[in-house]
Design a protein around this nucleic acid. Structure first.
Lengths: 200, 200, 200, 200
DNA sequence: AATGAATGAGGGTTCATTCAT
DNA sequence: AATGAATGAACCCTCATTCAT
């Protein structure tokens, strides 16, 4: 019965993903999740030990991915040499190459982590990520010592960058438009940052 | 008991504002709100007729402000002539004058409206505002007919612009730094937009 | 300040009477009663010691009246000689004289006792009265020994007689139509009883 | 657990029926109902979706019956030819046949509808029925044009007829005595009405 | 593997009553 | 005499979780 088992399990996971994305972890009730998955609340506990573990399952892969990325601190930095390119016009294609290699890894799990994890043990993920991105921005700002007070805006930039990233993933399933938008997104923030620094 | 009355009322309002900001309207429980305000649930209803009315009280002023601004559609457009200025360097001071006249009116009420109103009658406010901003962006993109596919990014930009705006209000009470950040924010989006269009 | 005092007191009594009649003792809230009386909940307790005492005040006169009537057992019996009259046509005028002498005493207090006293210490009044009337009916039925099993219907007759009586008082303020209806009512029950016994 | 399920469900229904009859829909608390049914408030909602649905369940069959009877308007009229019979003595047996065909359908559900539905969606049932009965009485009174002012008493008669009907159902489970009393009841009202009109 | 009955805590709300002012 | 703030119990209802079947 391995086969059927996975069917139910997957049905629950799908239903839960949708519910969590739409109503958040606390807002989505187990009752409604299992109902949409065509099973019962009792049976749910044959597959998952708790609501939290359900969320965990949906999110763990992307969380590990994300943490690895964060600790390696390499792929994230890769496009940085762009900062030294003079012309925004050529950024797009370089970014495009960059984004293709690590973006596919992220999916709705990432969105759940960022937008729907309130009430779970992951609720700090968003903050951690934002903090990391912020430091990243600050690094670059620091290279241009003159804009000290721009740093105040860095946290805002960082949180928006992350939320925008997550919003794109959420709203767009089609990989092509998704990637295009993600590139737009990176581009927008690079241009914005450069402009704020005074590069134009 | 007129004296104590306002104290309690304000304690409830403060406690509620904090709770709503942190946990959203539905996530924040009346019981926890009144507890932090050092009163009882029964007494709460001597001051407010419902949880919704409590939210209403916190939000109504900023909501009216916001609706007025939206319908007049004038102050919001004012800084648009900046788009025709060639040099980003001088934008800052022009924006600065503009922002001073209408920003001071907004406070945490606006943040509640944008970030914490799910489950209240105001829950569409964020969407309305984002839609309005989005149209605004699209207008400017349209002036440069060649970037048709940039429009896909407009909704992202709009929602982030609004969320960033709200985040600044939330994180900064000090009017001076707040205004500075709001100017940064506008600047960042103008630069970003112009850059995306290909102006640089 | 005796004058003003009674004004408030009367306003409360009027408002309460209406509320109790419409929603019953438990269904009517003190809050709504004092609001309609243009005073406050706190002030209410300067005039009455409890909700129950308020009801008490509205009802005590009619209750005593009623109890006296019940124990004397005289006026109630008075029209009984009618039973021996052969022609229903002449009953009406005899009843008319009878009813005039004791009906005026009853008012809304009586209705409250019968229809709105659930939850108060008077909640048995209706039952007591009905029981008394029932015994009355049974007495007359007994005079015609042959209809033994008619007695089963006596409790129904009694409770309906009482409720109808009370309903007339409730629906009709005008003394003239009220008395006419009360006479109709008595007549109806006398005819019905005689008919059931087999007099026609 | 199918076995136990119905036990609990029935226990709740029984307890609720009793509570609603005694204290009305709003007066009866869910807590007291489930307590008497030896279960918990949480569990109640595994059987019924709301207090209203609980009432609904108790009442829906009789409500449909009643509505059908009212719309067909036939069985109700059937005994009318009795009015033209000269001798009350033979009425009883004719009524007896009539009543047997439609009365058995009614039970406590009907009583709940009439006496305990305040606060539910059925709260107008009593009024509707009384109005229908009243019109019925008026019809017959109209055949004897001379008693115009008797019509004032028709609403009283109608409401009492209905309440008496309901009281009999409430007080008597035994079908035999119940039917006998219902016949008595009809008889009583026919005699009363004829007498009032002046037929005797 | 699957069911759904059972639990108990907590949600927003209303109530009669008390009491300081 | 008058106010209305304060209390605590009770209202209907939803929730995640447990457990017997």
């Amino acid at each position: 019965m391995q086969f059927k088992k996975n069917e139910v399990r997957n049905a629950i996971l799908e239903s839960a993903e949708k519910a969590f994305l739409e109503q958040g972890f606390e807002g989505a009730s187990l009752r409604s999740i299992v109902k949409k998955a065509n099973t019962t609340i009792g049976n749910f506990y044959n597959y998952f030990s708790s609501k939290e573990e359900l969320f965990d399952t949906l999110v763990t892969h992307d969380y590990k991915m994300f943490m690895k990325l964060l600790s390696e601190h390499e792929p994230m930095d890769r496009p940085d040499h762009l900062w030294d390119l003079s012309n925004p016009k050529i950024w797009r294609e370089v970014l495009s190459e960059f984004i293709i290699q690590f973006i596919p890894e992220f999916g709705n799990g990432f969105v759940l982590l960022i937008q729907s994890s309130e009430g779970t043990s992951y609720q700090n993920t968003r903050k951690i990520l934002i903090k990391a991105i912020e430091e990243h921005f600050v690094d670059h700002i620091d290279r241009f010592g003159e804009n000290e007070d721009l740093k105040g805006y860095a946290p805002i930039m960082a949180s928006q960058f992350v939320d925008g990233f997550s919003k794109i993933l959420l709203d767009h399933d089609n990989p092509k438009t998704r990637n295009k938008l993600l590139i737009d997104h990176l581009l927008f923030y690079m241009i914005g940052t450069m402009g704020m620094i005074g590069k134009f």
